[in-house]
């Protein structure tokens, strides 16, 4: 009996210690670019790509929601679910297109954990590089704009995607840049531009 007690206690202590050690080591070997964001930490780790809602609730459509769901990574070292909020592009792009090909597969990722707002007691992740576990070559996580083009073949005109996106254009036409109606926009622009 004594032996079982000792073993279980030791296992518990080791598990907690392992989590603390790995939490401190995610920046080791990371090649991620840095930007001075809030609470920014380089982080390279391995884990399984998951549909977050499926992971939490058991509501699991095929192929992690086929690009319509927020995706995350269950980190292998500590089983923590990390929300992936951003890819490596600089045009307001999320990461679902970059992660989707790896749905329910094990990957290595390199990027940044960010955030220190008291309203969220964990950091979210910006994925910059990704590869299937076991592969040697990294892929840059920058698929979003090409995927947007294929989803919006009729979004013509000049300028970046966010000036031409049909849903954004429609919304701004309806409620203005400030969201308070075209009249408020007009007054503010006249006074400030």
């Amino acid at each position: 009996m004594k032996r079982i007690v000792v073993l279980l206690t030791a296992a518990s202590c080791l598990a907690v210690s392992a989590a603390i050690v790995t939490a401190e080591d995610f920046s080791k070997d990371s090649k991620a670019g840095t930007f001075g964001l809030s609470g920014e930490q380089k982080a390279m780790f391995s884990g399984k790509v998951v549909d977050i809602l499926c992971e939490l609730s058991g509501d699991c459509p095929a192929n992690c929601g086929d690009g319509k769901r927020n995706l995350g990574i269950v980190r292998a070292s500590d089983n923590k679910l990390v929300m992936v909020s951003k890819n490596a592009q600089f045009e307001f792009n999320g990461a679902a297109d970059d992660l989707l090909a790896y749905c329910n597969k094990s990957v290595d990722v390199d990027g940044l954990l960010i955030g220190e707002d008291p309203g969220v007691k964990a950091k979210v992740y910006m994925v910059q590089l990704i590869r299937l576990s076991g592969e040697t070559e990294w892929k840059k996580a920058e698929l979003w704009t090409e995927a947007w083009k294929s989803r919006n073949p009729n979004a013509t005109g000049e300028g970046p995607w966010y000036r031409r996106d049909p849903r954004v254009v429609k919304q701004i036409e309806k409620e203005g840049y400030l969201g308070l109606g075209p009249k408020v926009d007009k007054k503010w622009i006249a006074e400030n531009q």
């Binding site: 927020n70 929300m83 909020s85 951003k86 045009e91 307001f92 792009n93 999320g94 990461a95 679902a96 297109d97 707002d117 008291p118 309203g119 969220v120 979210v124 979003w144 966010y162 996106d165 849903r167 954004v168 919304q171 701004i172 840049y177 400030l178 969201g179």
Partner: peptide, 23 residues
């Protein structure tokens, strides 16, 4: 607001910031 539209259309997670600051 406009940037928030861009980010939502860009697939960045949207949240609700509650009155107590919880996101």
């Amino acid at each position: 607001h406009t940037c928030a539209l861009w980010c939502a259309a860009g697939g960045i997670p949207v949240g609700v910031r509650a009155e107590d600051g919880t996101v």
